[in-house]
Design a protein around this nucleic acid. Structure first.
Lengths: 209, 209
DNA sequence: CAGATTCTGACACTCAGTCTCAATAATGCA
DNA sequence: TGCATTATTGAGACTGAGTGTCAGAATCTG
């Protein structure tokens, strides 16, 4: 899947290299000047590709900004598909997310943190990742329904898929806020904490802290 | 809050009437021709207002399409703010949503169903409502944190806020699919079912249907 | 009715995203 | 290696959403 994979045809390698180059430059420019203030025109100038090439690599300006986020969820869905169901489903999703965090490439940390920080500054980006998230959840539900032999409309599956992404979201938010201190281990620790908080949340009542 | 409220100054009444007229025509045109295929130009022609007026009433084309959805969440936040915390928080959120469904104006049903159907046809609209949803959840967390004297970053609050909107979402999806049969009562029944499914979801394991 | 305030419409402008077409680069096969 | 096939690129024109300005009209206050 990487641009240096010699097994891939040259055409494909070039395409992936261009895509990666654009995403890197996009993240840098958006961080420096702001997402809204940076035009696609400037971006493609810096990347030395044409507008056409940009929009062939990414459907929207937003998509170029959140490439690291996309990698995360693509990997998550891949890991989930490979997995055999055993034990409580929610725990399984927690493990899958932890495994995902372990499998992502080393340079992903920095890109993801930059992306998340960027998202905090731009409604358009938040909108884009939230939209992306619903797509991921839909696929998780479909995958689980298939494996467990359940109706894809089962209320419980949707609740589980949503809880998993929420737990990630909360864990990642705090991890990013602390500058990624403690690396992937810290991230997975926070993730387990977030999943552990779910039963507590259901029992939460006023007065009982 | 309605355009016919005589206690409001004339200016305000006109503004609300215009807003409502635009939203109604938008929903009709988008349903007839498709969201993407309908331009703002056509819309304002039909509504007999200028482009400027349109964008003063609604920040984006999407916002005009999902006005009924916006009414729902605005009402929800209002009901939540009025409420005193008692008993389990999740049950409280369920009650608040049920109450919200009861408080919305009679013509809301049709507009909401048309809106939800429209959303299924357009990624841009789905993105918009999902973005809107995160804003609502953020406000719910802030409101609950205030009332319960908890940290707004408390993991459990975010989980609860998310579960509530998920439960609504699932309940409304099925209700809309069945054409709103059974009216508001059917909607609140489905809502209670969805909330009831939450503990089941947590215990879900392969094999146990 | 007069003056202050707010709303409206008209118009020009920027920029994202789409489409077409000709030139170029990679591939597969003789 | 040479050649036909196929995918990729860059250039440029086009649509449409969203913004800013400004003059004039409608509403509000006294």
């Amino acid at each position: 899947m990487t641009a240096d994979d010699r097994s891939l045809p040259l055409r494909e390698r070039k395409r992936l290299r261009t895509r990666r180059a654009i995403a890197d430059i996009a993240l840098r420019l958006f961080t420096e000047k702001g997402f809204h203030a940076t035009t696609v025109e400037e971006l493609v100038g810096e990347a030395e590709v044409s507008r056409s090439t940009f929009f062939r690599a990414f459907a929207t300006k937003e998509a170029a900004a959140v490439e690291a986020e996309t990698e995360l969820w693509t990997t998550y869905l891949g890991e989930l598909a490979d997995r055999r169901p055993s034990g409580p489903v929610l725990a399984g999703l927690c493990d899958t997310l932890a495994r995902t965090a372990g499998v992502l490439p080393p340079d992903w940390d920095h890109r993801y943190m930059a992306t998340r920080r960027l998202i905090l500054t731009s409604p358009a980006l938040l909108g884009h990742v939230e939209y992306q998230r619903t797509g991921v959840e839909r696929q998780v539900v479909a995958c689980l329904a298939e494996k467990l032999g359940l109706d894809p409309d089962d209320l419980r599956l949707r609740i589980l898929a949503e809880l998993a992404t929420t737990a990630w979201s909360v864990a990642a938010r705090d991890w990013v806020r602390d500058g990624g201190d403690g690396g992937r281990q810290a991230l997975t620790d926070r993730l387990r904490d977030a999943f552990a908080a779910v039963p507590d949340a259901l029992n939460l009542s006023p007065g009982a802290s």
